[in-house]
Amino acid sequence: MKTLYDVQQLLKKFGIYVYVGKRIWDIEVMALELDHLHEARVITDQDFMQAKLVLNHEHRIEVQKTNE
């Protein structure tokens, strides 16, 4: 899992589609949904960690864009 698209595809397997309107908000909601899937033990620790790393990276990029 290397891109935000990969994370979206993972969530899609569980019927989770996220579109809030702003990319940064979408990333934050995806992170919450991932947390819920991990707590429910329906995704592996490996998938969870990789997805969180991708989301954290994308979130940092969006924060930098807004600060410029």
Score class of each variant (00 low, 15 high):
Leu11Thr: 01
Glu68Trp: 12
Leu34Thr: 07
Ile27Pro: 07
Gly21Tyr: 05
Lys52Glu: 05
Lys65Leu: 11
Leu55Ser: 07
Ala51Phe: 03
Leu11Asn: 01
Val63Phe: 10
Val29Arg: 15
Glu68Asn: 11
His59Leu: 12
Met1Ile: 10
Ala40Tyr: 00
Ile24Met: 03
Glu62Val: 08
Asp6Ala: 07
Gln8Ala: 07
Tyr5Gly: 10
Ile43Tyr: 04
Asn67Arg: 03
Gln50Cys: 04
His36Ile: 06
Phe14Tyr: 15
Met49Lys: 13
Glu33Met: 11
Ile43Asp: 06
Val7Ser: 03
Ile24Leu: 15
Asp6Glu: 06
Lys52Phe: 02
Leu53Pro: 00
Asp45Met: 08
Tyr17Phe: 12
Thr3Tyr: 03
Gln8Lys: 15
Glu33Ile: 01
Val20Gly: 05
Phe14Lys: 01
Gln50Leu: 15
Arg23Lys: 11
Tyr19Phe: 13
Glu58Asn: 11
Asp45Asn: 13
Glu68Ile: 14
Lys12Cys: 00
Tyr19Gln: 14
Leu32Asp: 15
Lys13Arg: 14
Gln50Ala: 14
Val20His: 05
Leu34Trp: 04
Glu68Ser: 13
His38Thr: 02
Ile43Lys: 00
His59Ser: 13
Ala40Thr: 06
Leu34Glu: 06
Lys12Gln: 04
Met49Pro: 00
Leu34Val: 09
Val20Cys: 11
Trp25Gln: 06
Tyr17Asp: 14
Met1Lys: 06
Leu4Arg: 11
Leu10Pro: 04
Lys65Val: 05
Leu34Phe: 01
Ala31Ile: 12
Gln64His: 08
Lys65Tyr: 03
Glu68Gln: 11
Lys2Phe: 04
Asp45Lys: 11
Asp45Arg: 13
Phe48Ser: 10
Leu55Trp: 08
Ile16Glu: 00
His36Arg: 13
Gln50Trp: 10
Leu4Asp: 01
Glu33Asp: 02
Leu4Glu: 08
Val42Lys: 06
Asp45Cys: 05
Trp25Arg: 02
Gly21Val: 02
Gly15Val: 09
Leu55Lys: 08
Glu33Tyr: 14
Tyr17Arg: 15
Glu28Leu: 13
Ile27Ala: 12
Asp35Ser: 11
Thr44Tyr: 04
Asn67Leu: 12
Val42Cys: 05
Trp25Met: 09
Trp25Pro: 00
Val20Ile: 14
Glu62His: 08
Val20Asp: 03
Asp6Gly: 03
Ile27Tyr: 10
Leu32Trp: 14
Asp35Met: 11
Asp47Thr: 03
Leu32Thr: 14
